[in-house]
């Protein structure tokens, strides 16, 4: 039983990171219909930001805390740049955006190799996060995972509140629900798009910081996790963040459980089949905005 609980918690913390990544994707996909494959490299940027900061601020705890806002800003800025330079020209061609941003992601990975070298690097976690907290009999949970969970809960709460209560949030929701109507109502949709991109990409940067606590940092660290994050968006549906929230945790736990019962390699296939099966039931994902279109 405790093994299963431990496994489930691992799933939860994987789900938490996935969620942080998927939120950004869901925002941009829902609002602009854009599939940004370079999102994975924003994660990488966040992770390397942590690494670089630790070279100057040697205190592991402090550098981690400083890294959070800076990684958010760095990744967010990269997102805005990408949106401005390329993506806004491609809003009518979502599949082409996917390929273009894949090209960008290749270049960013190479850039990381050139700057930081191809081998993985590692950051040092603050001592408190390398320990575990014991919960009852023989169940103990790594503090790093607890920290990540807390971070994600905070981020989701902040994002939800921002979308609900701030004027910017209202604008974003308006554009998601009806872009044309929002535009004629005087909302500067282009600026809203760019801001959404900033927030979504920034969250990827924060996810990158979190990932430094779980493993090494490398140029291709974004590639694999990004696919899982996309699957979260596919299954969760777009237009409403709660879909991503539910699905990220469910997928994380499902993956962890199936992995426990079988092996990692079989688990991937089973989860894939489960997703395709789920889409038979809900082809548009768990939650969806109904819009009226022929397309």
């Amino acid at each position: 039983m405790t093994v299963i609980l431990g496994q489930l918690f691992t799933g939860v913390s994987i789900g938490a990171v996935l969620l942080l990544i998927a939120l950004g994707l869901a925002l941009t996909f829902g609002q602009m219909n854009v599939i940004n494959m370079a999102h994975g490299e924003f994660i990488m940027a966040g992770a390397y930001t942590t690494y670089v900061l630790q070279q100057t601020i040697t205190d592991a705890g402090l550098s981690l805390l400083v890294a959070l806002p800076i990684a958010f800003a760095v990744a967010g800025a990269m997102g805005v740049l990408l949106e401005w330079a390329l993506i806004r020209r491609l809003y009518t061609r979502p599949l082409d955006t996917l390929l273009v941003t894949w090209g960008v992601s290749l270049m960013l990975q190479q850039l990381a190799r050139d700057v930081f070298g191809a081998p993985n690097v590692q950051t040092k976690a603050p001592d408190i996060l390398t320990e575990s907290t014991s919960l009852g009999a023989d169940l103990s949970i790594a503090n790093s995972r607890l920290f990540i969970l807390g971070l994600v809960v905070l981020a989701v709460a902040a994002l939800t509140a921002a979308l609900k209560f701030t004027p910017l949030g209202r604008r974003i929701r308006a554009v998601v629900q009806n872009r044309d109507l929002a535009a004629v109502s005087g909302i500067p949709t282009a600026r809203v798009d760019r801001l959404t991109f900033f927030i979504g990409s920034g969250l990827a940067g924060v996810a990158g910081v979190a990932l430094t606590l779980l493993g090494p940092i490398g140029p291709t660290m974004g590639t694999n996790i990004i696919i899982d994050a996309f699957l979260v968006v596919v299954v969760g549906g777009i237009g409403q963040l709660k879909g991503s929230v539910i699905v990220a945790f469910v997928l994380g736990m499902l993956q962890a459980m199936v992995e426990y019962l079988t092996t990692l390699s079989v688990a991937k296939v089973i989860v894939f089949i489960a997703i395709v099966a789920f889409l038979q039931w809900r082809p548009q994902g768990l939650f969806t905005l109904r819009t009226r279109s022929l397309a």
């Binding site: 996909f29 219909n33 599939i35 979502p94 599949l95 996917l98 696919i227 996309f230 699957l231 596919v234 894939f272 997703i275 395709v276 889409l279 038979q280 082809p283 548009q284």
Partner: peptide, 11 residues
């Protein structure tokens, strides 16, 4: 099930 084209690409 008319899963959208982008989802197909990702799948």
């Amino acid at each position: 099930r008319r899963v959208r084209g982008a989802y197909f690409a990702i799948l």
